[in-house]
Design a protein around this nucleic acid. Structure first.
Lengths: 349, 349
DNA sequence: GATTAGCACTCGCACAATGAGAGTGCTAAT
DNA sequence: ATTAGCACTCTCATTGTGCGAGTGCTAATC
């Protein structure tokens, strides 16, 4: 975190004014407009002087020699750092959230997808929700289902409500009874252990299984390992992609293209929301603060979620750097909190 | 299907030429260009006369009094109807498909998503893959997993490789042994029956269950019914949304916006690909032939897929009416065929 | 009778010129 | 330290112009 240069009170006010005016209109803003709309008790000339200072400090810049000022990423950053706390959702929106989470849910997937849709419609930006991370989940149940003679499906239910499946190639034909027995034994040793180490645990237990079941157990261990390594298994729900093309959000089409492309790239998204998982609160990445080059003109507002203080997954919003940070942060915060709450309600105690 | 007006051979050739030239350049095409690029053995004037005829017949039109001709939806339709058969994928692409389906797969979800990505990269359009429809699936296995005292998760595995889950509220606390017993009994009567009628079947069997299990069974029946009615449970995989914004595909931004919005709407997509499910072959909907208003400037090329002649699900591509139909149709056909093949390999016999 | 050459005509579009307006930086006055 | 005044800059919307591609029609040609 770069130490934040001090600004005298008036400069700070002017910066705030520039940011909020620019965010709402999208037009570069000049000294006159500034004194007219905001009750700065000084003349345009004074404002101009201060703006020169703000520009020197890197908070704003000139698109062209003669049009108004626009905040830089650093300018937004200064602005955002001022209200790390007092973010309240407008009551209409708060009501919407409340109602949404009041409805009963019967499926995690669906709930998460709809949560993304909610977040998107609250903020008018693209919204992303990651399902609870597998490596933070405990196994609640495993099952083996026979598909054909030589194939079976491994089903794993986690304490976070996820249901993963994986198809196994069995070296030998096993009938259903045998599979059931294997599943039973696996359950006994795997339930309530972390999915993370399940593969190792399983392999270690191999010699407790009857000979004829061992090939199946090996296959299970293998599948668990593979699943762990495979980042693709991290489910993402993305909604509101269409908002990216909204008028005035991004300068040119090719930027829009890049942003949408980046959003489609699950691996990238994971990276983008990664720090949200560890941070305790809402995290904001503005423009170039972003690790992904394709998102250099975007800001990402993200937060972890999980029942009561835990961080199982993360969610967030991607929009142009010119966004209403206050509202966005409030929305992300509120939704993450409520989702966490819902998760604890969903029956995982 | 409107009966197709006969065109004399030369007019047909000219129409073909207009379509293929316009598709590849995006520019309205005039009589001179036409005789230069294509070996029509007539003069521009003759071509102009024929074009007037084609325009009268509704196959092409003038954007403005003085620039070249552009195919109408009907023009594309005529063009498309000519090669319902001989669509071959370029060998590079065919190789790509072959390689893709040569790799071993362990998860249906993932395979379908990647199939969508493949289809998108083959065609350079947005691609959609629907998972095998639940109402065409048989139950292979059901399971009940205890979550908390009063909640359990119903897991259903179908013969099409799908794994659905649903959270139940149990009126009474049941321990795991009781749940297992209930699941066992359910399995015995539900395995190999259609998911479609499973709810009714379950309800009918109620009195065979011991008293203490009945509330759970009722909950299961209820869940199955709910799932059936819920169109949201039809999984969709969408890839290549970014291609929609590609230069020159659509006239204005608001169209792009609408198209992307429509793509995000799962319910709409289902409608769009609906007829593909029943048709035997590749279906093509051009522009206004499309039932969805937001897609009036799009063409949809879709096909059913499933192991050997069955139609379990559908997949397709959405792009501008100005697309290379030949290639697109070939790609959709090939991918649907291979995906069907893969599904039978995946162990559902 | 079908085809073609010739020609006048129509637009769209790219390009340059113009002027208004918004905003700036600087200097000198307060 | 602030402000009024002013010359200056640069964008943007508007207008005019010419070019070129393409058309439809008529009359000549095969």
């Amino acid at each position: 975190m770069p130490s934040r240069p001090e600004l005298d009170e008036r400069k700070a006010r002017i910066l705030r004014a520039i940011v909020s005016h620019y965010v709402s209109t999208g037009e570069p803003v000049g000294s006159k407009t500034l004194v007219d709309r905001f009750r700065l008790r000084v003349s345009p000339a004074t404002v101009r002087n201060d703006m020169a200072g703000l520009e020197e400090a890197g908070f704003i810049y000139h698109p062209h020699t003669s049009s108004g000022r626009v905040p830089t990423d650093a300018g937004y950053r200064y602005f955002v750092d001022e209200f790390s706390d007092d973010s309240r959702l407008p009551s209409r929106d708060a009501q919407m959230v409340e109602q949404f989470f009041g409805e009963p849910r019967f499926e995690l997937q669906d709930a998460l997808r709809q949560t993304a849709a909610l977040l998107s419609s609250l903020t008018n930006h693209a919204a992303i929700v990651f399902a609870p991370a597998l490596d933070r989940s405990l196994i609640r149940h495993v099952d083996l289902v026979r598909l054909s003679g030589s194939r079976a499906m491994l089903v794993v239910v986690t304490d976070t409500g996820r249901v993963e499946n994986h198809i196994l190639n069995l070296p030998d034909d096993l009938d259903e009874v045998q599979l059931d027995r294997a599943a039973d034994m696996l359950n006994r040793s795997l339930v309530d252990t972390a999915l993370e180490g399940a593969s190792v645990t399983t392999a270690a237990l191999l010699d407790r299984f009857p000979l004829e079941l061992r090939p199946a157990v090996v296959a299970v261990a293998h599948a668990l390992k593979q699943q762990k390594g495979d980042r693709n298994t991290e489910q993402v729900f993305l909604e509101g992609t269409a908002t990216i093309v909204d008028e005035g959000k991004f300068a040119d089409l090719s930027t829009v293209r890049h942003v949408i492309e980046a959003l489609e790239h699950r691996r990238l998204l994971l990276e983008v929301l990664a720090d949200a998982l560890d941070g305790a609160q809402v995290s904001v990445r503005i423009g170039s603060e972003n690790p992904v080059a394709d998102l250099q003109f975007c800001s990402v507002v993200a937060a972890p979620y999980g029942p009561e203080g835990t961080a199982l997954g993360s969610l967030g919003v991607v929009g142009p750097t010119r966004m209403d940070y206050r509202r966005t942060i409030a929305a992300v915060y509120e939704v993450s909190a409520q989702l966490g709450h819902m998760l604890s309600e969903l029956g995982m105690e």
